[in-house]
Design a protein around this nucleic acid. Structure first.
Ligand code: FES
Ligand code: FES
Lengths: 140, 140
DNA sequence: TGTAATGATACCATAATAGTATCATTTGTC
DNA sequence: GACAAATGATACTATTATGGTATCATTACA
């Protein structure tokens, strides 16, 4: 079971890379070269990020993408929502038995709790947080 | 994204039903009739539950399945492990950048936390807990 | 006006999940 | 012992979600 799909993963990596370039626009060829993400797939992803106002795009020669807002205002949760339609961890399984539509069901409760927890965790991860982690790694 | 697959769901329902019958063996035809789970799929699932010592099977006329141990000793987490190979929520995505193999990565930390939390929640759900919930529902 | 970029969109491939079919084996009953 | 009613084992198919590709249109700079 995956919490994060490859869509989201690639989006996150690309956004991180772009964030690190400050206000310089970054093109797909550059991203492909640095991140080794399949070109067409990456393009599709970046287009979606643009549509959702995570990135701004610039067409034409010398064009590319930049962040639409500061790196500490872009949350992993945003990307998950975009590419995975939110977590929507689970509609309850037991459609009929044993719990028809009980508020008190233990299973339902747990699932909701897990979902809320996952949200709260992913809300704390921003691009800038991830970039810091990566900096430390490179410095080591 | 599903925390619980249909395998596990069906297994849980079937096990709950069987648990409610005490020591009476319950056959596939009966389960199909009551739970409306596709017959062959259910059979496969029950066979797996038998192999993993959640259920005991009894062949021949009048045969069927009973719980291999008390309902409060059968955990949802067991079933998830069996049918979904544990939660194994996520091996880290960023294979290279931005965090090569850093202990301190924010994302990794979150993912591990979520995984642990999910485990702890599912460990608390037993067949008997679910049966209680369902009882309440039916009484209401 | 040519070229380097993205926009839009339709299509294909792979893998995970869900479900089916079939034959073999065991066991109770007449 | 024969038959029927159950499970055991296993191989196959179908559906869906994910991952990935290809192509043509549009924009913008030089
Ligand atoms: S299992 Fe769904 S309400 Fe209880
Ligand atoms: S994203 Fe994997 S270690 Fe940070």
């Amino acid at each position: 079971m995956k919490l994060i799909t490859r869509n989201t993963d690639y989006a996150l990596r690309a956004a991180c890379y772009i964030a690190a370039q400050r206000q310089r626009t970054v093109s797909v060829p550059e991203l492909v070269n640095k991140l080794r993400i399949p070109r067409q797939f990456l393009r599709k992803i970046l287009q979606v990020l643009n549509q959702h106002n995570i990135l701004l795009s610039h067409k034409g020669t010398g064009g590319g993408f930049i962040l639409a807002r500061p790196a500490d205002k872009i949350f992993l949760l945003d990307l998950i929502r975009i590419f995975q339609g939110g977590l929507k961890i689970n509609k309850c399984m037991f459609k009929k038995s044993p719990c028809p539509n009980v508020k008190s069901c233990a299973l339902r409760k747990r699932i909701i709790k897990i979902e809320e927890f996952a949200y709260s965790q992913f809300k704390r991860v921003t691009l800038s947080v991830l970039m810091k982690a990566s900096k430390k790694a490179n410095v080591k």
